[in-house]
């Protein structure tokens, strides 16, 4: 087993720990912390995949800004000690696990197994660099870029609308 493989296994264990934590921790704060772990680890995995810019963005935007928002809201809502740990015997829980298991197995068997062998790739030297991403973003993807800016405006106006006083 090479160093890279070990690194990947460690990272994915951490990420999975975070993911399991989000779902199964019984307080929202703990879930949020687990999510931070997951996001941070994912950022590192993105580095492994050669997407350095996206890895940095992931850590800054997701693990940083978005999670702060989450924690902020959780604090405001005072629901730190609310316990809604999923009941293992609950019917909903069992059925959802069963359903997810079936879908998981199918996708794993038919989609992921065939890719277990795929390793070698050809890359351009600039893969994942800010220059390349920036260039594409402002040429080919200019229109979606503009639209996403509108989307952020929609988000802002929407939040204001939901929060401001009547009229």
């Amino acid at each position: 087993m090479t160093l890279n493989q070990i690194a990947f296994i460690v990272l994915s264990c951490l990420a999975l720990f975070g993911a399991v934590g989000v779902v199964f921790f019984n307080t929202p704060v703990r879930s949020a912390m687990a999510l931070v772990v997951n996001f941070f680890t994912l950022g590192l995995v993105y580095f492994m995949l050669g997407s350095e810019l996206i890895g940095i963005t992931q850590i800054m935007v997701y693990a940083g800004a978005i999670m702060v928002l989450f924690l902020f809201v959780i604090m405001i809502l005072k629901s730190t000690n609310d316990t809604d740990k999923p009941q293992l015997g609950e019917r909903r829980f069992i059925f959802s696990l069963l359903g997810a298991g079936v879908v998981f197995t199918m996708i794993y068997r038919y989609v992921i197994m065939p890719t277990m062998e795929r390793t070698n790739v050809q890359f351009t030297r600039t893969y994942g660099t800010p220059q390349e991403i920036g260039k594409t973003l402002f040429t080919q993807y200019a229109w979606p870029f503009e639209i996403v800016s509108m989307l952020l405006l929609v988000g802002i106006v929407g939040s204001i609308m939901l929060a401001k006083r009547r009229f």
């Binding site: 090479t2 890279n4 493989q5 050669g50 992921i112 277990m116 795929r118 070698n120 790739v121």
Partner: peptide, 8 residues
């Protein structure tokens, strides 16, 4: 990485 870890 790309030689050692498969896509799967």
């Amino acid at each position: 990485v790309f030689d050692e870890i498969p896509l799967g």
